[in-house]
């Protein structure tokens, strides 16, 4: 299944929030939607979920306008919140029913997820008796219980301890393996890099960059080497201005020509005590800062 947002524009009162958003995501893969605060991520998600219509453009599935009766969407909003004073089971079943499930199926599905996330003991408790992290796990169930085709997770890892983050990672991997479209929106780049094959970086209501993350990284000129060594002094002395230090204590060597990579690697290994050596690839963080930062430009 292929989900496409085609040239979507949206204005609120006098401000144009989206200025032609286009990107596509495929089932069985995770898609990362990135952008600074106010870039238009939430508005895009809301249009995708039919909370309000776009001014122009449309949401398509397999090239045809989306029919919300046939496509189920699960959503974990960035702003978390359910009914604090109500029983957990009651509200989870309610939300699953609103998504079209029958009551009995909803109870079964909710119980499955409560157990899967280790929350079964809280089934008949009020939500406000739970810790923040546990409330977030409860909210995750509202996004998954009705077995949606598209799962949208907005900052899913914020507020989770490492053990719960691990649990969530497993759940996300399962969803991807089940052939769902998983849409991530997060500022925690490491998670996006870990899961997402494709990304889109939004800046000021436009898509500044979209594509396969691996290809994007490969598109950068491969003319730098990252070297880790026990004795950086010798290399620094020999290479002078071409050599800079990286944040983790390694050395970055700038080559005059990308084609001399292999020769340079061989020379380094032969001449110095080298622990590791590799061609430098920018991290998603670097790419994000470049495209979504103040001087962020659109994709060439």
């Amino acid at each position: 299944m292929k989900l496409e947002l085609c040239n979507i524009t949206k204005s609120f009162t006098d401000k144009q929030v989206l200025k032609g958003i286009t990107f596509s995501a495929e089932s069985g893969k995770a898609f990362g939607l990135l952008g600074r605060n106010g870039a238009g991520k939430t508005t895009s998600i809301r249009i995708l979920m039919d909370v309000f219509p776009p001014d122009s453009g449309g949401v398509h599935i397999e090239g045809r306008p989306i029919d919300y009766k046939n496509v189920q969407i699960g959503y974990l909003p960035e702003e978390r919140g359910l009914y604090p004073k109500k029983l957990i089971i009651d509200q989870l079943v309610y939300f699953a029913q609103l998504k079209g499930m029958r009551r009995r199926d909803a109870v079964t599905a909710v119980d499955f997820w409560l157990e899967r996330l280790g929350m079964l003991e809280y089934r008949n408790r009020r939500l406000d008796t739970l810790s923040k992290g546990n409330q977030q796990k409860i909210q995750l169930i509202t996004a998954l219980a009705h077995d949606p085709d598209i799962v949208i997770l907005d900052e899913p890892f914020s507020g989770l301890d490492p053990v719960n983050a691990m649990l969530l990672k497993d759940v996300v991997r399962e969803q991807i393996a089940k052939g769902k479209i998983v849409l991530f929106s997060s500022h925690q780049m490491n998670y996006i890099e870990e899961f997402c094959d494709h990304i889109a970086i939004l800046a000021e209501g436009k898509v500044a960059l979209t594509g396969n993350l691996h290809d994007i990284k490969r598109d950068y000129v491969r003319d730098r080497l990252v070297v880790h060594t026990e004795n950086p002094g010798a290399i620094r002395r020999d290479f002078g201005d071409c050599c800079t230090e990286t944040e983790d204590g390694g050395l970055m060597l700038q080559l005059t020509d990308p084609n001399e990579k292999k020769a340079m690697m061989r020379r380094l290994v032969d001449t110095y005590e080298i622990d590791s050596i590799k061609v430098f690839e920018p991290s998603l963080n670097d790419i994000f800062v470049q495209y979504a930062g103040d001087k962020g430009g659109t994709q060439q």
């Binding site: 809301r46 979920m49 909370v51 969407i73 959503y75 909003p77 702003e79 978390r80 919140g81 359910l82 009914y83 604090p84 939300f95 609103l98 998504k99 909210q139 509202t142």
Partner: peptide
Amino acid sequence: SEKSSRAMELLITSA
């Protein structure tokens, strides 16, 4: 109160 507890974020996308 649904709005202030942000349950609305989810409700508005569910109904």
